[in-house]
């Protein structure tokens, strides 16, 4: 897809632990991946798997417990305030909750203009022009600039959030479940908008999602997370055609297909039980408590993420 083979973002052995009353919550435990310029990595997993924590740690909202985050050749973890401000111009984030992610006391114009104000990019008339331009870009009207967030629908609010992130012309965007709170029909609008922006501006995305359906359309590569670890990672064609990890298979099988005949015939893999608590997770392979192929070794050894075929990584003892 991209001629530039250099990774824009490289995450090496990232760890983020939270010290809570019940013990240590290993939200992200030794996660590594890289995203090439102009590409999209989809990061998928269920609630509590650490996908959002990964995103927030990369962007600097959390300090990593261990590991390295390298953006365009430079280490960006443990930045000073000025360093973070500089990094902010290049990397931005889109948030999940279209209701909580916009300040209810600010007009849409001021919300979108916030980045412009912070980095003192434009003032006065130019600033307003830029805000109008951004509203156009995400498919909203100019009149919307004077309105307040509560006057908009969920999809429109998410567009405002995208315009806010785009205002300072970043190269890299982390989209933290930008569509999971939206109706299916609106989800497609947002995914398409993000894809258009990517093509126009050559953006690089980390797209976080809780199921595998929409991710497929926007991602070049997909990584599946379970309890703080990546269990499978490959390109988005291979993952859907040939899922290897039992958890990925279950995730794929769980998404209902909008076709009653197919749906009635289909044999679903239904996972037993719930995701265990990330505080004191199961020993060895963390998925073993819900895995029908679990073996003795799964209890004793944590499988490492290894390449089983060209560019297809799996962390599972079935493939070692």
């Amino acid at each position: 897809m991209s001629s530039n083979d250099k990774a824009l973002l490289e995450v090496k052995n990232l760890k983020k632990y939270f010290y809570v009353s019940g013990g240590v919550l290993k939200a992200v435990d030794d996660v590594s991946f890289a995203i090439k310029k102009g590409q999209t990595l989809g990061l998928v997993g269920e609630s509590g798997c650490g996908k959002s924590t990964t995103g927030r740690t990369i962007i600097g909202l959390y300090e990593p417990t261990g590991g390295e985050i390298i953006f365009d050749g430079e280490k960006v973890n443990h930045l000073t305030y000025d360093g973070r401000k500089k990094f902010a111009r290049r990397a931005q984030m889109i948030f999940q909750d279209p209701y909580a992610s916009l300040n209810p006391r600010m007009t849409v114009g001021d919300i979108i203009g916030e980045g412009i104000d912070i980095h003192e990019l434009y003032t006065g008339k130019e600033r307003m022009e830029r805000i109008y331009e951004l509203l156009d870009m995400v498919g909203l009207n100019r009149e919307h600039a004077n309105r307040f967030p509560h006057e908009f629908s969920g999809g429109q609010r998410q567009r405002i959030g995208i315009a806010r992130a785009m205002a300072i012309e970043p190269e890299f965007i982390i989209a933290d479940e930008p569509i999971s709170a939206l109706d299916v029909s609106i989800q497609a609008q947002i995914v398409n908008l993000l894809m258009n922006l990517q093509q126009e501006k050559g953006l690089t995305y980390l797209f976080i999602a809780h199921d595998l359906s929409m991710v497929r359309h926007i991602s070049d590569n997909v990584a599946v997370m379970y309890l703080g670890m990546i269990v499978e990672m490959t390109n988005s064609v291979e993952l859907y055609a040939n899922p290897l990890h039992p958890y990925t298979q279950a995730l794929l099988s769980a998404v209902p297909i909008p076709d009653p005949k197919v749906e009635k015939k289909r044999e679903r893999i239904i996972l037993e039980g719930d995701v265990p608590s990330p505080i004191n997770p199961p020993s060895g392979c963390r998925f073993r408590t819900r895995c029908k192929y679990a073996m003795d070794i799964c209890k004793e050894q944590t499988p490492s993420l290894r390449e089983v075929s060209n560019g297809h990584f799996v962390a599972c003892h079935l493939f070692s």
Binding site: G155, V184, S185, A188, S213, H217, P258
Partner: peptide, 25 residues
């Protein structure tokens, strides 16, 4: 038609571009 088209199908062989319903209710 719009609702049906906007849902991605995991069983499709290739990944198409999604067809959303434009606009807002």
């Amino acid at each position: 038609w719009g609702l049906l088209r906007s849902v991605p199908r995991l069983d499709a062989k290739k990944k198409d571009r999604l067809v959303p319903i434009i606009g807002t209710p």
